[in-house]
């Protein structure tokens, strides 16, 4: 299938992170927004560039800074002196794929404007409502919150991102390969589109049709219930979270050419879907997926 090609094209840009790339693709196919959390220089921007290019999506990038205003992002009404009318000037958010770079550097006001647009898939300015293009994705990147000059996203807004992935340092071999690549070609440029946006929409539909048996749904329910009833989880998983787990598990199964979900699919996506919803804001980066790992270990996928 085409996404094999997609995957290999993607891995040319980000070397040595096949699992993270797969998760990112899953998130796109599950029609969810993606949050990439990492230190500077780990390839966050490169990954989003590559995703936009490979899907042939209309792409724009918003660099978030502390003085960025909602209007800078959404657009504003500007007076046209020839027609004596106000005209709406579209902001950079009117794209199919928006890269919200360093989202936690912006003020909370701007952050919530973006997150509102993400949820509603439309923008309201001065009483007028403008539909955002479809498909519409936001890839937010975020520095770990303990870096200075950042406003950590509140838990309620973290929930809007279907998945959170973290790239992390590449291993020796991967980094070596990357460095030798740079020696050959200085600039790769924007990657060529492998699939078109229509195909993506079609995939999204197919992924949503993947069959999830009762036992899989029960498994997801056991997981979220465990997070609600057991001490030690700062924020329990919401129904929105359980929905996200199911949709991304379906997309994961679809990526593996299955038309049914198995518990392994749930386990594969669970950490990236659930961890950022459960952890409290002040948890150290080091214990990255400890909560979801503990949940997975304590819930039996084959319980009667």
């Amino acid at each position: 299938m085409q996404y094999q090609a997609l995957n290999s094209a993607l891995s040319e840009h980000i070397i040595g992170k096949p699992h993270q790339l797969k998760l990112a693709l899953t998130c796109i196919i599950a029609n969810g927004h993606l949050l990439i959390e990492d230190l500077p220089g780990m390839g966050k921007t490169t990954l989003s560039h590559a995703l936009a290019g490979l899907f042939g999506l209309q792409f724009s990038r918003i660099q978030f800074t502390s003085d960025l205003l909602p209007a800078d992002m959404l657009g504003s009404n500007i007076y046209n002196s020839q027609t004596h009318n106000f005209e709406f000037r579209h902001g950079p958010v009117f794209s199919q794929l928006v890269l919200a770079d360093e989202i936690n550097r912006a003020s909370p006001k701007t952050q919530s404007a973006l997150l509102e647009a993400m949820e509603e898939k439309q923008v309201s300015i001065d009483g007028q409502t403008f539909k955002l293009p479809s498909p519409f994705f936001v890839i937010g990147t975020q520095n770990p919150s303990y870096q200075s000059g950042t406003y950590p996203l509140p838990e309620s807004q973290l929930d809007r991102f279907m998945m959170r992935i973290s790239l992390g340092y590449p291993d020796w071999e991967a980094e070596k390969a990357m460095l030798s690549q740079v020696a050959i070609t200085q600039d790769r440029g924007t990657p060529k589109a492998v699939v078109c946006a229509d195909t993506l929409v079609q995939w999204q539909y197919q992924a949503s049709q993947v069959h999830a048996a009762d036992s899989v749904i029960d498994y997801i329910l056991r997981l979220v219930t465990m997070s609600r009833n057991t001490p030690g989880y700062p924020h329990a998983l919401s129904p929105r979270a359980s929905k996200a787990i199911l949709i991304s598990a379906k997309a994961w199964a679809f990526m593996h050419e299955r038309d049914y979900v198995v518990p392994e699919d749930v386990q594969a996506v669970f950490e990236s879907v659930a961890e950022h919803r459960m952890r409290s804001a002040n948890i150290e980066q080091a214990e990255d997926t400890v909560l979801s790992k503990r949940l997975l270990e304590s819930v039996d996928p084959l319980a009667a």
Binding site: V262, P263, Q267, P301, L302
Partner: peptide
């Protein structure tokens, strides 16, 4: 023992 692993694992 199967420590809450899925069937295939």
């Amino acid at each position: 023992a199967r420590n809450n692993e899925s069937a295939r694992v």
